[in-house]
Design a protein around this nucleic acid. Structure first.
Length: 407
DNA sequence: TGAAAACCTCCATT
DNA sequence: AAATGGAGGTTTT
C-alpha cells in the first residue's frame, strides 16, 4: 500500500495550555490510542493523525491513505505538495483542540471565583474541551450510558472497525474513521451491534442513525452547533448572551437532542459541550453529582437526589460560578476526580510487570506527582483492568464467553 | 413531579 | 464456582 507519510511538524504549546495526556483520556473522546511510547493516534478527516508532546511543543504527523486506483493519478508536478496538506492538518489540529481560548487565563478566572477550583485545578492543568465531530459525539455518548470509559472505547472502536472507512495501519493496527450516519442505517445494524456487545444501546444507535440520516438530516445536527464555534471548515458567527440556563442556541440544541432515543439530559449536554461547541454546557453525571454534594453543598433538602430539577440546579450553579466556559471548568474538576484516570495509568505498568516502576507515562511534572501518590496507594488495594482489548470483534467476544463458561 | 425498576454487558467482589 | 452489585444513563412504570 502506497501510503503517504508526512513528516513530523511541531506547534509551540505549553503544557498548561494543552496537555494531551490528560485531555485525550478524560472521557470526552473515545478513539485515541497509543500507537507508540508517548504517541497518540487516531483516524480523523481521512488521515491518521499522530501526536507527541514535550514541554514546549505539540508534534504532529499525518498519514494519508493510498490513492484509490479508480481515481486518476495526477502527474507528479500536479501532485499536492506535502506542504499544502500540512497546512490543512495544522488547521485541523487547531480546530480539534480548540486552541483559541487562553486556558491559563481561564484557569485564573475560575480560581478567582471558586476556592474549590483553585485548590484542585493546579494538578490538572492543560485540560481543554475538544471540538469533536457532532455526529461522533452523539453516538459516543449514547454508548456511554451505564458504562465506563474503557468499555465505551472498545465499543466505539468496534463500531469504526465494522462500519467506518479504513484509513490505514500503524504497526498492523487498523485505523478507521468514524462511520457516517448512512453507514448505520442497514436492516441488520441493531442485531449486529447487539452481537458486538452494545446491549440496549444497539437499538438507540440504529434508531438515531435512521432519524439523523433519513429524517432530520446530518445538517440538522450540525446546525445546532455554537455559531462561534462551528464544525471544522464552517465560518464563525456571534452566538448571543449568556443567560442563567445558558445561551439561547445552547438551550435549543439541548432540547432538540432530547428527542432522540437514548439521549437524556446528560448525554445531550455531552453532545452540546464536546460536539457542538457550547462551552456553558455542564453535563451532570453521578460523578459530577458526587462533586456537587461533596464540595458545593448539594445533596440536602430540596436537592437531596439527582432529579431532573436538581440536574438543572447543579448545572445553573456551576454556570453562575464559572461563567460562559463553565463546561471547561467542570471538565477540569471531573478529571481531577476521575479515579480511573490515574488508576489506569498505574495499572497498565503494574499488570505487565509487577516490578517495573511507573514509566514515563507522564510528560507532565505535576501529573507525575499524582501518579506516584496513586502508585503507593494502589499497591495494596488491587489491580485495575488494563485496556488490552480495545478491538474485539464478534469472534473474540464469543470465544471469551465460551471460555468463561467452560472454566 | 418523584421514586424505582428495567434495560444489556462487563467486571470485580463475595 | 455461582451470585451480586455497580458502572460517567435513559425509559418506562
Amino acid at each position: 500500500m502506497a501510503l503517504r507519510v508526512a513528516e513530523w511538524r511541531k506547534l509551540p504549546t505549553s503544557l498548561t495550555e494543552l496537555c494531551i495526556n490528560t485531555t485525550l483520556r478524560c472521557g470526552q473522546s473515545f478513539r485515541w490510542r497509543k500507537s507508540a511510547e508517548d504517541e497518540w493516534s487516531m483516524a480523523l478527516h481521512e488521515r491518521i493523525l499522530s501526536l507527541r508532546q514535550d514541554a514546549d511543543h505539540l508534534h504532529y504527523r499525518a498519514i494519508y491513505p493510498a490513492v484509490t486506483s479508480s481515481l486518476p493519478t495526477p502527474p507528479p508536478s500536479y501532485a499536492p505538495s506535502v506542504a499544502s496538506d500540512e497546512d490543512d492538518t495544522l488547521a485541523l489540529i487547531e480546530h480539534y483542540f480548540n486552541l483559541t481560548p487562553n486556558l491559563g487565563q481561564l484557569y485564573e478566572q475560575w480560581a478567582a471565583s471558586d476556592a474549590n477550583f483553585k485548590k484542585r485545578a493546579p494538578k490538572f492543568t492543560g485540560v481543554r474541551i475538544l471540538r469533536q465531530d457532532a455526529w461522533e459525539a452523539l453516538i459516543g455518548f449514547i454508548c456511554s450510558s451505564n458504562n465506563n470509559i474503557s468499555r465505551i472505547s472498545g465499543m466505539v472502536h468496534n463500531l469504526c472497525l465494522h462500519y467506518g472507512p479504513l484509513i490505514g495501519h500503524i504497526e498492523d493496527t487498523p485505523y478507521h474513521d468514524f462511520p457516517r450516519p448512512e453507514a448505520l442505517t442497514g436492516p441488520n445494524v441493531e442485531a449486529h451491534l447487539m452481537k458486538l456487545g452494545f446491549g440496549y444501546r444497539a437499538k438507540y444507535i440504529a434508531k438515531t442513525a435512521r432519524i439523523v440520516s433519513e429524517e432530520k438530516g446530518l445538517q440538522w445536527l450540525e446546525n445546532l452547533s455554537n455559531p462561534e464555534c462551528p464544525q471544522f471548515g464552517v465560518e464563525t458567527k456571534p452566538a448571543g448572551e449568556l443567560l442563567e440556563g445558558g445561551r439561547e442556541g445552547y438551550r435549543k440544541a439541548h432540547e432538540e437532542l432530547l428527542a432522540l432515543h437514548g439521549v437524556g439530559p446528560k448525554v445531550a449536554d455531552c453532545v452540546c459541550l464536546f460536539g457542538l461547541g457550547w462551552s456553558e454546557s455542564v453535563p451532570v453525571d453521578t460523578h459530577v453529582w458526587q462533586i456537587a454534594q461533596r464540595d458545593y453543598k448539594f445533596g440536602r433538602g430540596k436537592h437531596s437526589s439527582l432529579t431532573a430539577a436538581t440536574y438543572v440546579a447543579v448545572a445553573n450553579h456551576f454556570r453562575k460560578l464559572w461563567g460562559k466556559e463553565a463546561g471547561w471548568a467542570h471538565s477540569v474538576l471531573f478529571t481531577a476526580d476521575l479515579k480511573a484516570f490515574s488508576e489506569r495509568v498505574v495499572a497498565k505498568t503494574e499488570v505487565k510487570e509487577e516490578k517495573v516502576v511507573v514509566k514515563k507515562e507522564e510528560d507532565h511534572v505535576v501529573i507525575e506527582d499524582v501518579l506516584k501518590e496513586e502508585t503507593t496507594k494502589r499497591k495494596r488495594v488491587k489491580k485495575e483492568p488494563e485496556e488490552e482489548r480495545q478491538i474485539l470483534d464478534v469472534k473474540e467476544v464469543v470465544s471469551r464467553r465460551s471460555k468463561r463458561r467452560k472454566a
